[in-house]
Design a protein around this nucleic acid. Structure first.
Lengths: 223, 223
DNA sequence: CAGCTGACAATTTGATCATATTGTTGGGTC
DNA sequence: GACCCAACAATATGATCAAATTGTCAGCTG
């Protein structure tokens, strides 16, 4: 009764519009709805997403700051193209970041954490069986992101997520062109190592996972 | 004569206002004009910097995205406080990033590159002698940033610069409270190793430099 | 037929304004 | 004297608009 606004009684924090737009655009980049080289305009997206110009502008700015989009000098914004040199940097950075966080996650994960992770992996397998690339990419990202969260190292996690944002479009290209979904599943090894509390085995497994994925990207890039 | 605009004949790319504001705010964060915990408001900065509201808003958004500022839930934005756990992440990340890039920079630097680097280091020494903290911080940043540039790994460089942005305010606190400027100068070792083309020596030197600086921060943090 | 020039269209940019939400302060009551 | 409530002030948000800039295309000239 003391609630002043009659709109909705319990809305603790209505997410701002620019935040929502940002997340939608972010997902579009992450899961390959936007291909490398695609041009994006504020007005175009504004109409396409049925949103105001202001939130779209801010979301684009933020994505540019994070490297998910590229400011093409003259006033053109597009999804960046990935070069082989970039891939080398991705590989090196993710090999380090992911193994680092994997060790900590193995140390810190509780029983229910591991179950939740296994559940994501299950959904991932389902997506593979159904050949649903979009779902595969989403669950794969969730899997790794959960490891980042479990490691409880927000700064490293932020760096890693920035990397995902940068090679998201590339991943879609990889998956579209190659079958790429029928490889030895490192995720199972990761789960086993975590259950056993074996940090080094988990780190080795995720190292393989990262390297494997990146090799695919490299192969797809060189046609 | 064919120039349509009479304003200025040869302005290839007039930098947008939000870019300028961003850089000013960035420097303020990077060089300690804003202390950890300081609150920032759009209107306040708008008046303080004598700029429109729109560019300031976008610049703040960008800095939040990069982790240089923090969105405090209720609509308050402030300079993030650094915790000991954060420092641990900084140390680990920079030890890896800086050594990685240092090796490549050593391999790629030309004679004139090394001279330019030495020149920055000279200016840094001057700042130390004059006890000019601001100049010290600026030149120190320039020194490391040039190494990043020389390494020609833009993605890793971006990650490292993001880290600098996050612990910039902390650095100022460190320098203010401790003398901190009279330590064995690793920069000289770095320059020597680069001249000798010794990647590993350069990497070891910068590892020490990073570790040393971070130890200072840790010490300052625990009072 | 090719190259250049001029005008038009599309887009970004930055300011201004209406609105909503939140923190705060002053007054009243128990 | 302490606590609660209401009004106010400050701030962020998002839409709208004017201005400037740039890419593009048609038409003209050599």
């Amino acid at each position: 009764m003391s609630q002043t606004s009659a709109k909705s009684a319990r809305t603790p924090a209505p997410p701002p519009a620019h935040e929502l737009i940002y997340r939608r655009l972010r997902d579009m980049v992450l899961f390959g709805d936007l291909a490398p080289g695609d041009a994006v305009t504020i007005q175009g997206l504004s109409q396409n997403l049925d949103a105001g110009v202001t939130p779209v502008r801010e979301a684009i700015r933020r994505l540019i700051a994070e490297g998910a989009l590229e400011f093409q000098g003259n006033r053109r914004v597009c999804v960046p193209e990935t070069t082989p040199e970039h891939i080398d940097e991705f590989v090196a950075a993710r090999q380090w970041l992911d193994t680092q966080m994997m060790r900590r996650a193995t140390r810190k994960a509780s029983e229910s954490d591991r179950q939740a992770l296994a559940k994501i992996d299950k959904a991932l397998d389902t997506a593979i069986q159904q050949n649903d690339i979009r779902a595969y990419l989403e669950h794969n990202f969730q899997f790794h992101q959960m490891i980042y969260d479990l490691s409880d190292t927000p700064i490293l996690a932020g760096m890693a997520e920035g990397l995902w944002l940068r090679f998201g479009p590339m991943l879609r290209v990889v998956c579209s062109r190659i079958g790429a979904l029928d490889l030895p599943d490192r995720h199972k090894e990761i789960l086993q190592a975590m259950d056993a509390g074996d940090e080094e085995a988990a780190a080795a497994a995720i190292w393989e996972d990262v390297t494997q994925g990146m090799d695919q990207a490299r192969a797809a890039l060189s046609d």
